[in-house]
Computed example of a mutant assay.
Amino acid sequence: MPIDSIWSYAPDVSHVQAQDLTGYTVLASDGTIGHVDRQADHHGMRHLVVDTGVWVFGRSVLVPVGVVAGIDSRERRISVSCTRAEVKAAPRFRTDSETMDPAYLGSVGEYYHRLPPRETPTG
């Protein structure tokens, strides 16, 4: 899979271009990560900023949409194809300005691109 694909929804993910995912619960393969705080598409690098709540207290994480394995609009849930530990180990997200920094986004994309593929969580 080319690294550019980490910034695009997989063809089998039912995502509508203008769909607002704010507030959706984000589930890793082994549990809840948090809720979508906002979504962005800077420099063609589409991603979600996820508020982790009490899991990683006071911290948000940036998740490229290429790891989204499924969207359940009725249940307002998003499944991602990685574990909680993998999300936590990603390059640290500190400020909103990083969502516009191509170097930071590139390091996040490279990190997620190197993760081994795995099964979709069943939720």
Score class of each variant (00 low, 15 high):
1 M>F: 07
6 I>S: 02
7 W>P: 08
9 Y>T: 07
9 Y>S: 12
9 Y>P: 06
11 P>H: 09
12 D>T: 11
16 V>H: 15
18 A>C: 12
19 Q>A: 15
20 D>T: 14
23 G>I: 11
23 G>T: 08
26 V>W: 01
27 L>V: 03
29 S>T: 14
33 I>P: 03
37 D>P: 02
38 R>P: 01
40 A>L: 14
40 A>F: 15
42 H>K: 10
43 H>V: 06
46 R>N: 13
48 L>Y: 01
51 D>C: 05
52 T>N: 00
54 V>E: 06
55 W>L: 02
55 W>D: 02
59 R>A: 01
60 S>A: 05
61 V>P: 00
61 V>G: 01
62 L>N: 00
62 L>S: 01
63 V>M: 01
65 V>M: 02
65 V>L: 04
66 G>Q: 02
68 V>G: 00
70 G>E: 11
71 I>S: 07
72 D>S: 08
72 D>Q: 04
77 R>T: 09
77 R>P: 01
78 I>E: 04
79 S>M: 04
79 S>R: 04
81 S>P: 10
82 C>W: 10
83 T>N: 03
83 T>P: 04
86 E>R: 11
88 K>Q: 14
91 P>T: 08
94 R>M: 15
96 D>C: 08
98 E>M: 13
101 D>N: 09
105 L>R: 04
105 L>D: 05
106 G>R: 05
107 S>H: 06
108 V>T: 09
113 H>D: 13
114 R>K: 13
114 R>E: 15
115 L>H: 11
116 P>F: 08
118 R>C: 13
119 E>A: 13
120 T>K: 11
